[in-house]
Simulated assay, not measured.
Amino acid sequence: MSVTAFIGRALLASIFIKNGYDHLQNPDYIVRAARGAEVPEPELAVKVNSAVMLGAGTMLALGVAPGLAGTALAASLIPTTVVGHPFWDKQGAERQQQQIHFLKNLALFGALLAVSGRRR
């Protein structure tokens, strides 16, 4: 594997590792958002999603089953993006900020699809 691919994968994984760890340590805000979006079992959903981000992010950074790790992270981004950044429900500056985060997550999703589908 090339040095640039290794660095790129590690950088892509870094946001998932950090957020997964942070959300496991401090889940209250995320649980409230999940509860507000009527996610069933919000505490469990947040723990599972955070563990996927931390575990699969670490796997991706280390190059352990990167296709599987990237697929798991892409799947975790779907509820994270819809629940966490509902710009369609907001107005003004808050709408713009949430839309930026929503689009950032779409870009991450695309990068994860590229990593997951890459053949060696």
Rank of each mutant, 00 (worst) to 15 (best):
M1V: 07
S2I: 06
A5I: 06
F6H: 10
F6V: 14
G8K: 08
G8W: 13
G8M: 08
L11P: 11
L12N: 06
A13D: 03
S14M: 09
S14Y: 14
I15D: 12
K18S: 12
N19M: 14
N19L: 09
Y21K: 09
Y21F: 09
Y21Q: 12
Y21D: 08
H23K: 14
L24K: 08
L24N: 07
L24G: 04
N26A: 15
P27V: 01
P27N: 06
D28T: 05
Y29T: 11
V31N: 01
V31S: 03
A33E: 11
A34F: 11
R35V: 03
A37V: 07
E38M: 09
V39S: 00
V39A: 03
V39P: 01
V39T: 08
E41D: 13
E41N: 14
P42W: 03
L44K: 10
L44D: 10
A45F: 12
A45G: 00
V46W: 07
V46Q: 04
K47F: 05
K47E: 10
K47W: 06
N49P: 07
S50E: 00
A51I: 11
L54I: 03
L54Y: 01
L54C: 04
A56F: 00
G57H: 02
M59L: 06
M59P: 06
L60F: 06
A61G: 12
L62V: 12
L62F: 10
G63E: 06
V64S: 06
A65V: 08
A65S: 14
P66H: 05
G67A: 11
G67Y: 05
A69Q: 02
G70P: 02
A75G: 05
S76W: 04
L77I: 04
L77S: 01
I78S: 08
T80M: 04
T80W: 03
T81Q: 11
T81K: 15
V82A: 08
V82T: 08
G84F: 01
F87V: 02
D89P: 02
D89T: 09
K90L: 01
Q91L: 09
R95V: 13
R95E: 14
Q96G: 08
Q97L: 10
Q98G: 05
Q98H: 08
Q99V: 07
Q99I: 12
I100W: 09
I100R: 14
I100A: 15
H101W: 13
L103N: 12
K104T: 10
A107K: 02
L108D: 09
L113T: 05
L113P: 07
A114V: 09
A114C: 10
A114P: 11
V115Y: 01
V115W: 05
S116G: 15
G117K: 13
G117R: 15
